[in-house]
Design a protein around this nucleic acid. Sequence first.
DNA 1: ATGGTGGTAGGACCA
Length: 256
Amino acid sequence: MLIATWNVNSVRARLPRLLDWLEKRKPDVVLLQETKCQDEAFPEEAISDAGYNFAHFGQKTYNGVAILARKRIESVQRGITGGANPDEERRVIAAQVEDVVFVNLYVINGQEVGAPRYFDKLGWLGDVREWICANFSVQEKLVVAGDFNITFDDRDVHDPERWREKILCSTPEREALASLCSIGLKDAFRKFHEEAGHYTWWDFRTKGFQYGAGLRIDHLLMSPPAFESCLASEVDLEARGGEKPSDHAPVLATLA
DNA sequence: ATGGTGGTAGGACCA
């Protein structure tokens, strides 16, 4: 089973590229973030014609998450249920495909360390952790993936000194990510690549991709049964090149 | 590199 997570930065603006990429890579399951459209504006026909079922949890202009799958999508959950904070922002969708449960997250960016949205981000990550604990089992094949907007450590940062304690790299953010992992989830990418210099996001504003200045903030976290069955993981850099790319590259993983 | 680019909008937001 080939799975992928990709912040597409508008599913409609990226539709031609998304369709080309689906045709080329033929993933079995795709977790999309930042679809940036309401459910009725989701390009249903194009996705269906490409051979995918889908479940979308979208809103106008901002956020929005979707799951695409060649096989049946079951037990869809939209948003965090039962938590303290209702989901006025649509950042979470979960579903099962075959024997794997997927939780797709678009984590709050946080703007800058100390900003109100920064504290929202840390609090929200705690809520998500609790919700996952209450609703899913790490004894099963569980994949918690998406745009986390957090680097694990300095290996994920092109210029660690410049980013020291900055947004996406601060110690509290990294601790929140580690805390989520502590329920029994591991970073699938690091099973295969221990070295520094692998990135998934490059800032449009600084022409980061052109200069190789990126961060690794998109992750596939896996429960032990999923992690053990994981045979490969890679960042698809090709999908970040060319005309009108998203600012994020897809991250893929193969499950046995 | 404290500016810059991109998406959704149709003026500022968010990233």
